[in-house]
């Protein structure tokens, strides 16, 4: 049995089906990308898996099975234990998710102490610094003493990833984790996510509108359109063999170094 099985789900906001008949499976250590235009339902899918649909969204049909158990039937209590330890999520701008009036260190230490009730404050702090440095943040101690606004976007994003990875989750969900970042920072973050897979066997679902990023990091790519799966396959299929017209349209629109020039 696969680690994650999403079986023919329909997701509705206010009883309006937005994503229909969506299925995917993911094994340990696999990376899958969801690509497609904005509004196609990518965020909706990964939020449904994380049990955190906004705006009254609900999974109205189908099932989501994680390690043999339906996530849809999890109690609040069970979700609280799972989130952050077995399944983590990274958002587009982790900085915006942080409380601007609290130092990164206070927020991070508290996060650790909600997952490990009995850990001493000092130990939680050491653990946090260790994770930050593993994400190649230059000085973990410095970062801990900073407020979110004092860090660059790339640094904040690495703090978000460090927090998400603290308990080496089996499944990492990432919603446009590099879209707000410069190309150099994007490359660093993509490399770090791939190292997670190598070092811990983490499985990753990443939403991205950057087809280059999707092609580089994924074992499997799913193209979404109007709430449905339009096309899917591995990189080789997507880039060179798909005959799907929509996939072609997306690929043609990607500006490429040495590609089409309009002048």
């Amino acid at each position: 049995m696969a680690m994650l099985e999403v079986n023919n789900i329909t997701i509705s906001y206010q009883n309006r089906p937005t994503v229909t008949d969506f299925s995917m499976t993911l094994e340990k250590g696999q990376i899958c990308s969801l690509v497609g235009e904005s509004g196609s339902g990518k965020t909706t899918v990964i939020r449904a898996i994380f049990g955190l649909l906004a705006g009254g969204g609900k999974v109205t049909e189908g099932d989501i099975i994680f390690e043999g158990e339906s996530l849809l039937e999890y109690s609040k209590e069970k979700w609280r234990k799972l989130r952050g330890s077995d399944i983590s999520m990274i958002f587009q701008d982790s900085g915006a998710m942080m409380n601007p009036t609290r130092r990164v260190g206070d927020a991070y230490t508290e996060y650790i102490r909600t997952h490990e009730k009995n850990i001493a404050k000092g130990d939680a702090r050491t653990k946090a610094i260790d994770m930050l440095e593993r994400m190649r943040l230059p000085s973990g101690d410095n970062v801990m003493r900073s407020y979110p606004f004092q860090l660059s976007g790339g640094m904040r994003q690495r703090v978000g990833i460090a927090m998400g990875m603290t308990y080496q989750p089996k499944l990492l969900l990432a919603d446009e984790p590099t879209s707000a970042l410069d190309v150099t920072t994007q490359a660093q973050i993509v490399r770090q996510m791939m190292e997670l897979r190598e070092n811990y066997g983490t499985a990753i679902i990443v939403v991205t509108h950057n087809l280059g990023v999707a092609a580089y990091m994924s074992d499997h790519i799913i193209v979404m359109r109007n709430g449905k799966i339009e096309d899917q396959g591995d990189r080789d299929y997507m880039l060179y063999h798909s005959e799907n017209e929509y996939t072609h349209k997306l690929l043609d629109a990607v500006p490429s170094i040495g590609g089409t020039r309009y002048v």
Binding site: G154, A215, S256
Partner: peptide, 25 residues
């Protein structure tokens, strides 16, 4: 050159590791 090396491109060589400057600006 460093900027260019860190671009993900659908025409890139996928067998090569992506390069990036590791330090912060």
């Amino acid at each position: 050159k460093a900027l260019l090396a860190s671009v993900f491109d659908i025409k890139m060589d996928f067998t090569k590791k992506i390069e990036s400057i590791d330090s912060e600006i």
